[in-house]
C-alpha cells in the first residue's frame, strides 16, 4: 500500500518518469477535452438545446456566478483559470467511483502544483489589473510593518491550500482502503459516497479560496 499515486512509477528514463499521477491526469484531461469537444460540436443558439449543452451551460454559468459573488466583477476573465481548477479537481475526485482509480488530487505533488499555480496567478492577475506598484503596495497595508506577515501569509496559505486538498482526499482514500480490509461489505460503499461528497466539497473549497485570493489581489479595496 502506498500513500501517494506518485509512488507508482509506470515508466522512467533518468529524471523523466511517468508515475500514476501524471498518467491519470492525462487520462482526465483527455476525457474532459473529448467530452467538451463532443458536446460543443453540437452547440445550438436556439432555445431548444440538448441536455448535455444545458448541463454544461448550467455548470459554467454557476461557476461565473460564484466568481462574481466572491467579488470579481468580470468573471469571464478568470473563468478559464478558476473554472478549470474546479472542473479538474471535481472530476478527479468524482472518478473515485471507479474501482482501482487513484485520484491525482490524492498526490501532494498535484495539490502543490495547483497551489503554486494559484500562488503565481494571484500576483499576476493583481499586477495585470492594478499595476505592479499598486499591487506591491498592498503588501505594505495597513502598515509597512505588516510586510513580512503578508509575505508569510501568502506562502502559508499556499501550503494550506495544497495540504488541505491533499489531506482530505488522501485520508478519504486511506479510510476506504482500510475499511475494505476490515469490513469489505457495505461500509466501503457508504464511505465511497461520502468520499464523492467530500471530493466535490473540496473542489468547491479550493476553487473559492483561489477565487478569494485572486479577488483580493485584483481588488484590494474590496477584499482585505
Amino acid at each position: 500500500m502506498h500513500l501517494s499515486p506518485d509512488e507508482l512509477i509506470l515508466w522512467q528514463y533518468g529524471f523523466f518518469k511517468l508515475n500514476n499521477t501524471i498518467v491519470t491526469t492525462w487520462i482526465l484531461m483527455a476525457v474532459l477535452v473529448i467530452v467538451s469537444i463532443r458536446i460543443t460540436s453540437h452547440l445550438t443558439t436556439d432555445t431548444d438545446i440538448s441536455r448535455q449543452q444545458n448541463a454544461l451551460e448550467v455548470i459554467i454559468l454557476t461557476i461565473c456566478s460564484q466568481i462574481k459573488e466572491v467579488g470579481i466583477q468580470k468573471p469571464r476573465q478568470y473563468l478559464g483559470f478558476i473554472g478549470t481548477i474546479f472542473i479538474f479537481i471535481a472530476t478527479a475526485n468524482l472518478f473515485t467511483i471507479f474501482p482501482g482509480y487513484e485520484p491525482p488530487t490524492g498526490s501532494v505533488s498535484t495539490t502543490f502544483a495547483l497551489a503554486i499555480c494559484v500562488f503565481i496567478a494571484s500576483p499576476v492577475y493583481g499586477i495585470a489589473e492594478r499595476g505592479i506598484v499598486d499591487y506591491l503596495k498592498s503588501y505594505l497595508q495597513p502598515t509597512p510593518i505588516m510586510l513580512p506577515f503578508n509575505i508569510i501569509s501568502e506562502i502559508s496559505r499556499t501550503f494550506a491550500l495544497a495540504i488541505r486538498l491533499f489531506g482530505n482526499i488522501m485520508s478519504g482514500e486511506m479510510i476506504l482502503a482500510i475499511l475494505l480490509v476490515i469490513t469489505p461489505f457495505i461500509f466501503p460503499i457508504v464511505m465511497s459516497l461520502l468520499g464523492l461528497l467530500t471530493g466535490v466539497v473540496q473542489a468547491y473549497i479550493f476553487t473559492i479560496l483561489a477565487t478569494v485570493y485572486i479577488a483580493a489581489a485584483t481588488s484590494d479595496s474590496e477584499i482585505t
Binding site: K17, M29, V33, I60, G80, G83, S107, T110, A113
Partner: peptide, 22 residues
C-alpha cells in the same frame, strides 16, 4: 518533477478547456 509536470498539465488543461469548452 511531478509537481512541474502537473503545473504544465494544468496550464495545458486551462488552455484546452478555454479553447474547447468555455
Amino acid at each position: 518533477f511531478t509537481v512541474s509536470a502537473q503545473i504544465v498539465n494544468f496550464l495545458i488543461l486551462v488552455w484546452l478547456l478555454n479553447r474547447f469548452l468555455y
